[in-house]
Design a protein around this nucleic acid. Structure first.
Length: 319
RNA sequence: GGUGCCAUAGCCAAGAGGUAAGGCGCGGGUCUGCAACACCCUUAUCCCCGGUUCAAAUCCGGGUGGCACCU
């Protein structure tokens, strides 16, 4: 049974920890191809702010789900999952090893455990009416409605988290089932893959310092011009793509919300917060393999060697 | 040397007798169709000593430290 599971390597970690270069090196060593699990790098024209892998950095290693959508398009987990599964399948077919690389934990989870998102979901009128209700009647009202149909979800989701309350109500509305039960069932799932889930990590202080440096570098590389161009191309603050770090702050600056200096300060701060949240996410994921850079003396050779050992132990690569 | 002002959490900062707002930062957490999103939790006994009072961060006295002005 174990033997029938197909291989999947995951390389993730907080932003700015060094996933990109490490993953390319790993791919070269094990004959892997990279599927990006990054909610922002999928968009074309968002290069600097998303710290997108460059052509040179790829070193000939195939990358998927990079530059596949326009920033004006809606991209989300369901689309991600569908495409990622397709690419992973294709890589398997040609005998390669798919490496899922990126910092969007939710996306990784979606393909690793093949979470079921199937529903109709085309009709948005219901959620819009709920949105309106939240505005007129208050968030507590909405939360009470949820409690009536799905008390477990009401307990788990804070009333202020309108977005999630609406989703839970919508799920019940569309399927007649409680999302809390659905989630619980999905949680029990075993991964269909023979996987190795690497989480690259570093000391918090070093991570934060790198984040600050990287933001400064982005500014020097012309992040502001990149955002100006996107804005000129019709991108607005409400779009999912423009909620990415670096984009929202520059857009706010261009809208006169605050000074450029302040925008940079906020961007750095929010990026640090993001890294912290990512770590929280990975901490509660099961079966992750923490790869602390400090334990390998920051030597990528040693890190890669360790990863290869793990992969051969798991039978993902031949020893 | 004198006079005045100030001294509250890592930072900013309310509070002027009734048992310490808030913001930021830090830290922790939630997350199963927007996830670089959205949301939650946590963080002081008020510079020190003494006094008044049932009760003091808040009043009085004395220290210490800082700021301003004067000689």
């Amino acid at each position: 049974m174990e033997q029938k599971k197909l291989p999947l390597v995951i390389v993730t970690g907080p932003t700015a920890v060094g996933k990109t270069s490490l993953s390319v090196e790993l791919a070269k060593r094990i004959g892997g191809e990279i599927v990006s699990a990054d909610s922002m790098q999928v968009y074309r024209g968002m290069d600097i702010g998303s710290a997108k892998v460059t052509k040179e950095e790829m070193q000939g290693v195939p990358h998927y789900l990079i530059d596949e959508f326009d920033p004006t398009e809606e991209f989300h987990v369901v689309k991600f999952q569908k495409l990622a599964k397709r690419y992973i399948h294709e890589i398997h077919c040609r005998g390669g090893i798919p490496i899922l690389v990126g910092g969007t934990g939710f996306y990784i989870q979606a393909v690793l455990y093949d979470i079921d998102f199937t529903e109709n979901g085309e009709d948005s009128s219901y959620r819009e009416s709920l949105q309106r209700l939240a505005e007129t009647e208050g968030v507590e009202k909405l939360h009470e409605m949820l409690r009536e149909v799905d008390p477990a979800s009401a307990d788990a989701i804070h009333a202020n988290n309108v977005k999630r309350v609406i989703r839970a109500l919508e799920f019940y509305h569309e399927t007649g089932q409680r999302i809390s039960e659905h989630n619980e069932a999905e949680r029990q799932k075993e991964s269909p893959y023979n996987f190795a889930y690497f989480v690259l990590n570093d000391e918090r202080e070093r991570l934060y310092r790198n984040i600050d440096l990287r933001v400064d570098a982005m500014m020097e590389q012309g992040l502001l011009d990149e955002v100006r161009a996107l804005k000129a191309a019709g991108c607005t603050r409400e779009m999912v793509s423009m909620q990415g770090l670096g984009y929202k702050e520059m857009l706010d600056y261009l809208a006169g919300e605050y000074s450029l200096e302040e925008a940079v300060r906020v961007l750095k701060r929010d990026t640090r917060h993001f890294a912290k949240r990512q770590l929280t996410w990975f901490r509660r994921e099961r079966d992750v393999i923490w790869v602390d850079k400090g334990q390998f003396a920051y030597d990528s050779e040693r890190i890669l060697g360790y990863m290869e050992d793990v992969l051969s132990e798991k039978g993902i690569v031949q020893g």
